[in-house]
Write a protein that binds this DNA or RNA. Structure first.
Lengths: 349, 349
DNA sequence: TTGAAAGCGCTAACAA
DNA sequence: TTGTTAGCGCTTTCAA
């Protein structure tokens, strides 16, 4: 422990190195016998300055481990150098690793541009939390973690006129989006199952206010249509939130002779698999199972599940990159689609 | 959608209400014919001011939905009004709902004091991410989400001299801690099992560099000792990280005739239960199972598992409250212990 | 190429 | 009770 804590020699050295935290641009200027302006120019790289003086300044800065005071810089530039990560606060969703993984990508990208991430929770019903942060002007832009149909948070963001990027899809114009191509991915996975000769595919889905679920449904339907299969309304179960609802849907699907149960996300799939096991239904012999989203929730399942796989960290990274461009007034695509993978496993063999 | 987005009437009204975002204290002063100081005093409540003028100021502020510029305020006060939430970035841990739930409590408490949360990821091996945020001085204090033995992040925080609170336990002096009483909780749960007549209790544990795991082990051992049971070294398996290691531990425990497998956390428990099921071992008839931590990971298990239960949100809330006190120079306890619940379920009957 | 000075929006010591 | 003034630490215009 001594090694880290009580080595006073090291501590002293550090105190010397990092100096007082209120070591300012003025101190540097004085030590070098130049003006604050010159120092500022050396740091920002803006304006003319001789190589020689720039190097002198930069060296001293390096030596003293000087960092500009972010608030002074912010006040002068009218910037906070913070980005808001607005993630759902609903308890069922907080459990999912998806948003944590996005965050990892966001933090990484932000840090490399000397930006930091401020957290806000969002809710379907109200926008007060996000409102507070926007009103307080603590951030230069916002990444919205999920989209809803008629999304009140998007409305709020537009109203406030702050740069923002959504992870997800939105019908509204002028909303910069980054998303996986759920429609295409789900169409492809469904189509593969159809090509395997499966016809009676059931779909158990979640909240249809979430645009991601709409996209998944759309892809599913498109695949059926393109193969001239009429979707059986008895096999489509949407808007299931609670475990009991999902279990009931499984019962109904079995009753209607489904060959394969398609789950819209990993939580639905975990519950479905658990229910099937409890009922002694064997996967894939008696019924096949596939999921439109993969996560560690499905790790502990005996039969590996056929799923679609995305990379949430890359999503976050990309969303952050796009937002930084917006903030800096650079051009960006309005809609950026990231890839996916189809993982065919034992549950559909 | 119109209702939220295109109601230009509403939009206009809002634009009028929230005014230009660069509406400042000087504008208020001018409109009211008073000085900026007076306005500042009305807002902060510091210094003498007549009720009448205060009300006049406050009313105008309300009307115009004025918010002080956080950077100007910060620059003048030498405060950021931000708190850093330093959570583990290791992928296995990011999956756990624990830290998200803590965050919920932290955000809630911070917001009610007009503080915001900045994210930093921490790692066992390096401290660069946290270093960056501290050097940049974007936060007034830090909440460290977990503690390690010989924790480099704690060393860093001490060195920088920034107020901080850890969630977890630390041997070092002068570290303000908020934690559940793991030692006591684990002792109690273990003791209950002993009282049920169980003698051959196996323990499968995780990384012993994490202080939480040390505390759990301590509680387990204390219970055995106090009942004069000699812990069988063949039944204690520590430092298991990968699933294969856990599964091997389960095999060994069964081989050594364990009556009950105690898991140090929910992930270990989920893997253990899955492994037992796969091997056709029936819970609780052939072997009992209990866990020192409960979470949604254990929801989808057929036999409900006996566990200890904590409230991570309360933990976050409490840590944030404590940190705010530290920042404001108020007194705080050095160590705050929160409660727990013992949930006896079918897995130990 | 460099510097003086004003300004970003707020606080607080001091004076009135 | 209120106002004047001088900062907080940085950027930027304008002048040298």
């Amino acid at each position: 422990m001594d090694k880290f804590i009580n080595n006073t020699g090291k501590e002293d050295k550090n105190i010397e190195i990092s100096r007082d935290s209120s070591y300012t641009i003025a101190d540097i200027a004085r030590e070098l016998g130049v003006s604050k302006t010159t120092v500022s120019r050396a740091i920002s790289g803006k304006g003319r300055i001789s190589e020689k003086t720039r190097d002198r300044v930069l060296n001293l800065i390096e030596e003293n481990n000087y960092r500009p005071n972010p608030m002074a810089k912010g006040l002068a530039n009218q910037r906070t150098y913070n980005i808001c990560w607005a993630m759902p606060g609903d308890s069922t969703i907080t459990e999912l690793p998806f948003f944590q993984r996005c965050l990892l990508g966001i933090v990484e990208r932000a840090a490399s541009n000397d930006y930091d991430i401020l957290i806000s929770m969002t809710y379907e019903e109200n926008t007060i939390q996000l409102s507070r942060i926007l009103d307080n002007r603590k951030v230069d832009g916002v990444i919205l973690g999920r989209t809803l149909t008629r999304d009140r948070n998007i409305a709020l963001l537009k109203e406030k006129g702050i740069p923002f990027v959504v992870i997800g899809t939105s019908d509204e114009e002028d909303v910069v989006q980054v998303d996986n191509d759920h429609v295409k991915a789900c169409r492809e996975l469904t189509d593969i199952l159809i090509l395997k000769g499966i016809r009676r595919i059931a779909l158990i889905g979640g909240n249809m206010n979430h645009t991601v679920n709409r996209s998944r449904y759309e892809g599913f339907e498109e695949a059926l249509h393109s193969r001239n299969i009429n979707p059986d309304p008895n096999l489509v179960y949407l808007n299931n939130e609670k475990n009991e609802e999902i279990e009931r849907a499984v019962d109904n699907a079995l009753m209607h002779n489904t060959e394969c149960i398609m789950c819209m996300d990993d939580r639905i799939c975990a519950t479905t698999v658990h229910k099937l096991k409890g009922d002694g239904v064997i996967i894939p012999e008696e019924v096949k199972v596939a999921s439109f989203y993969n996560s560690s929730l499905l790790n502990d399942v005996k039969t590996p599940i056929t799923t679609l796989q995305y990379d949430p960290k890359e999503l976050g990274n990309s969303a952050c990159e796009t937002l930084l461009k917006l903030i800096n007034g650079e051009e960006t695509e309005l809609k950026r689609m990231l890839g996916y993978e189809v993982l065919l496993k034992g549950s559909t063999q």
